[in-house]
Design a protein around this nucleic acid. Structure first.
Lengths: 213, 213
DNA sequence: ACGTGAAACGGACCCAGGGTCCGTATCGTA
DNA sequence: TACGATACGGACCCTGGGTCCGTTTCACGT
């Protein structure tokens, strides 16, 4: 039993300020990201694209992948974070309806719609990340971020007693493989999926029957 | 690109009535199921238990595993169905609150609580099944069964417009890795998890604010 | 009881794919 | 331009799912 330790993953951009980073290194990093992005987008199943494929497509040796990103999960993670960055900024410091100044009853649906839309548009990537066998999606820090943001908003919704669980449950409705099943396999149109989620969220946010006067 | 065909999986109990099945075959099948069950229960991560491990624990050659169950997924599937069978019977032909005669507003929470309880009690197994990389959980027929049963019940809930999506969303709150995260990692007590889900479900089932007279 | 052929057995074997090693080529700096 | 540090890349290793085939074991008919 190998007893999973705390993920070795040493040399992933140590950010040495003493020396300028080598040009070929950054160039290769970009090439790898681009190649991987393209491959994941093109292929139906994420596990169909191997590390060797990515290396070949980027015109680079396999070791370069692992030197730059640690392991497969690290590479996928880097790709995912790259795509997610703008949305994250919009959530953390942007204007309503995503930004922090939005009233909860408006922000919760906006957040969930943003997550869903992102996963629809990047479902192959999201699938690769969530389906990456080893570590569950719930260990990833970006999930932690979404969850705590959503929970904070839900906390201010009247009548919701368990905001943490509710946040988990609502986020679960945007799981990548569910999105892939509905949008990818069953060809549900993007807008219809968003509408369904919106209706479901609205139902959850609806105040309890007796409006306190 | 290997182009996933319709799962070869030929010789999984073809049920020939012409000849009595060989004694050693059924004995080995039992041994394998028992060994696998025990190993999955004992180990934290499902991918820590290999087919060779199971074969060794059962005192059987690897080929016997694959002859009897097709592939890894098939074995896990057989285990899962075995455990699930009593609940399935209770749902299909049992008494309330799980059986078909139950009024929807009572049956929906009962169904979801049954699923959740089952996944808590068999989370390693459920994790193995849902996390089995290749095919998404949504392709499995037992998911299809849960979904259609739940959808049928939800259809009769007033004000719910999209029963199919709602069924998906509610079932998503019982995903094995979420259960593992909350109960396994964060040590949430079983009863508390059930209470949280029950509260969430109740919130969804709550009728829209204006009660029709 | 015993011969017989079909079915099951098992472990050596194959192969894909993630991850590593180390001699070599390249870059930034003096 | 020389030099040390850094990155390169492809041969290599290893684990783990899945298969092959010679051998064994069973169920059935006599």
């Amino acid at each position: 039993m190998p007893e999973r330790s705390e993920r070795p993953e040493g040399p992933v951009q140590p950010e040495r300020p003493g020396r300028k980073p080598r040009a070929d290194a950054t160039r290769n990093r970009e090439a790898v990201l681009a190649a991987a992005d393209s491959l994941f987008a093109r292929c139906e199943s994420p596990e169909a694209v191997t590390m060797a494929d990515i290396a070949a497509a980027a015109g680079v040796g396999k070791a370069t992948l692992f030197r730059g990103f640690g392991d497969r999960t690290g590479l996928i993670h880097a790709l995912y974070e790259m795509r997610l960055a703008p949305i994250r900024r919009a959530v953390e410091e942007g204007a309503p309806p995503l930004g922090p100044a939005t009233p909860p009853l408006q922000r919760v649906p906006a957040l969930l719609d943003a997550v869903l839309s992102f996963k629809i548009d990047n479902r192959h990537l999201a699938l690769a990340l969530e389906g990456t066998g080893g570590d569950s999606p719930y260990a990833a820090e970006h999930y932690e971020r979404w969850h705590s943001t959503l929970q904070a908003a839900l906390e201010q919704v009247p009548g919701l007693t368990d905001s943490s669980f509710a946040a988990h449950a609502l986020l679960a409705a945007t799981r990548a493989d569910l999105v892939e099943h509905l949008v990818g396999q069953q060809r549900m149109p993007r807008e219809q999926m968003r509408a369904h989620l919106a209706a479901f969220v609205a139902r959850v946010l609806e105040p309890p029957c007796a409006p306190l006067d």
